[in-house]
Amino acid sequence: MNKIHMLLRVLHHAERIAARKLLVIGERHKSDHEVYHVTRDMAGWSHRHIRLLAEQGDRLGINLRDTTGRSRPLRVVRERTAELLGHRPESGLLLLRDLRKLHLDLVGLSVDWEILGQTAQGAKDDELLALTQKCHPDVLRQARWANNMIKVVSPQEMAS
């Protein structure tokens, strides 16, 4: 059972990182409005995953409650900086770098969910399997979005 506990902790941690990264990248690129809004929508999905994971944690006796809180004092600074620097050509390259990293993180997270799904079937734990079926498609969509944005942005930023 300890391995499943460990896996849930890993996923919980990775989802928290993904949620935070989605928000931070949005704020850092507030002048790229689609990036800003869609990352915030998708961060909402990650927060739901975190909540659902914590519920499973309760059931299995693992404490996955969020201890760090949600306050992010640098948000305003990031957004303001993004607005001030939004007219500089380098902002596109920074966006590309952030999207690249985000995509890799999300692909990693997707693999973790894959492992949980397989584990749940192996352990015949229907609730964990249902959780995976609920959350894994969201992560795939998040990763696909990041990949898609990279395709759209890179020719403009790299070839112009």
Binding site: E34, R88, S91, K151, P155
Partner: peptide, 18 residues
């Protein structure tokens, strides 16, 4: 290689100078 650019994105490219 990517979807044709929509006007809001064009305005963004003009804003950043590309």
């Amino acid at each position: 290689y990517a979807p044709p650019t929509h006007v809001m994105q064009m305005m963004r490219y003009a804003e950043e100078g590309s």
